[in-house]
């Protein structure tokens, strides 16, 4: 065995999980698929005093598509999205994102809620869901609340989740018929942690345009709306690496030179991809 000692609480309903989190001594973490947390525990980068296992909570497995809103329960696995078991409300974007996450054996166990809660900058869902304009649905001891991912994602490995709160799922606006998306991930090897992620979602019918840069050293970066609006109105022509680097500079983000170049390439390729065929 590799991890430091911890206590495990297996919860069978949501109330039990929340009270276990509230009563835990020391540092408690929720575990669902554990595909990001357990590797960190095996490397002892994470040493929680206790884990609350929420895999059995049916409240977190709901999936629906109503009135232009896709709802994906937090316990939905990447493989379920990859295999089309979640209704396609994003014109294939979520399916494409899911199939590039780690490896199939990891996607079979890892969950979308865990990915966002863990908030590894190199993970896919924090960037993809921010680009799609998703809202986190969160249950606390007394009330349910919602929070747009732009506010929820604070920094690397940090989200605005109170110690006794659980992510129930995500509400994601359905893309209109004439919407476009692009997603490009720079990885040295398929399934490895990303060096950069570029994501673009344009939905003219809803006047929605977002360009997001992921796999930085912090939370995914929502780039200035003017850049996404310009792409929405005049297309991808001219949005090369230099143009993407200019947008990164305009956002006030600074990286090492080689990182800026990789980020510029990821953004440019995401934008070009959104307008390809």
């Amino acid at each position: 065995m590799k991890p430091a000692k911890f206590d495990l609480e297996k919860s069978t309903d949501l109330g039990e999980a929340i009270s276990a989190l509230g009563q835990a001594d020391g540092f408690a973490k929720i575990v669902a698929g554990g595909q990001s947390l357990v590797p960190m525990m095996n490397l002892r980068l994470a040493q929680p005093d206790s884990l609350v296992d929420i895999r059995a909570l049916h409240d977190l497995k709901r999936i629906s598509l109503d009135n232009g809103q896709l709802y994906v329960g937090a316990l939905t696995t990447h493989a379920m999205i990859e295999d089309g078991l979640v209704p396609d409300a994003t014109q294939g974007m979520m399916q494409r994102v899911a199939r590039q996450i780690a490896y199939r054996a990891v996607r079979n166990r890892g969950t979308i809620g865990g990915s966002v809660a863990h908030a590894d900058p190199a993970a896919d869902w924090p960037t993809a869901l921010l680009a799609l304009g998703a809202v986190a649905v969160i249950q606390g001891a007394n009330a349910e609340r919602t929070m747009p991912l732009g506010d929820f994602q604070i920094g690397a490995f940090t989200v605005a989740l109170e110690p006794d709160e659980v992510i129930l799922g995500f509400s994601i606006p359905e893309l209109s018929a004439d919407a476009r998306w692009g997603y490009y991930k720079v990885c040295r090897k398929p399934g490895e942690f990303a060096d950069s992620i570029g994501a673009l979602v344009i939905d003219p019918a809803r006047s929605f345009a977002r360009l997001v840069l992921g796999a930085t050293d912090g939370a995914p970066l929502l780039l200035p709306p003017s850049a996404a609006d310009k792409i929405a109105s005049s297309g991808a022509d001219g949005f090369d690496i230099a143009a993407a680097r200019a947008v990164i500079a305009e956002a006030g983000a600074t990286f090492e030179e080689y990182e800026t170049q990789i980020h510029g390439a990821a953004l440019s390729r995401a934008v070009q991809g959104a307008f390809a065929a």
């Binding site: 590797p39 490397l43 054996a105 166990r109």
Partner: peptide
Amino acid sequence: CEHGVCGACTVMVDGVPQRSCIAFAAT
């Protein structure tokens, strides 16, 4: 590797391949 990268520990869990090094027996 014992952190989910090398795949040597892959077994079938509920009919699908999963990493047995990054799942606790208790879960």
